[in-house]
């Protein structure tokens, strides 16, 4: 369970929240002019990166407001929460070097459980 800081209610347990998918996906106003492929891209296709990801959450058991979150999906580190309509703030995080790589720490995955001798202790 994470702790999530609702922009309105403060820090609460994850069990009060629901995930609502990728953030900053605007609903096309001109759906009728889009090709099937373009429309399908909006309806069906979402990014699922390993690393930094902007996603929406809703404080289901609390104030019921939707808000945005920047989360490092490789480590579950929550880097920022911000209101709907706002731009994602600049953050720095331990990101995997490649899409299939590992964050240098925090994932608990095999490749980063143990430090290499040359790593600073």
């Amino acid at each position: 369970m994470f702790l999530i800081t609702c922009p309105y209610c403060g820090t609460r347990d994850q069990s009060e929240f629901s995930n609502a998918g990728e953030a900053h996906v605007a609903r096309p106003a001109n759906g009728e002019e889009l090709t099937d492929e373009q429309w399908a891209d909006f309806v069906f296709l979402r990014n699922n990166p390993k690393g930094l990801f902007a996603e929406r959450w809703v404080h289901t058991a609390g104030c019921r407001r939707f808000f945005n979150m920047l989360r490092n999906t490789a480590t579950d580190e929550i880097l920022a929460v911000y209101e709907i309509g706002a731009k994602p703030p600049k953050v720095t995080t331990v990101e995997p070097a490649t899409p299939s790589g590992e964050a240098p720490i925090g994932s608990g995955n095999d490749a980063v459980k143990v430090m290499r001798p040359e790593e600073p202790k």
Binding site: C9, R12, D13, S15, E16, H59, T60, A61, G62, C63
Partner: peptide, 10 residues
Amino acid sequence: VAGSNFGAAQ
């Protein structure tokens, strides 16, 4: 005041 889960009830 806080809205939360109490057991399985909001």
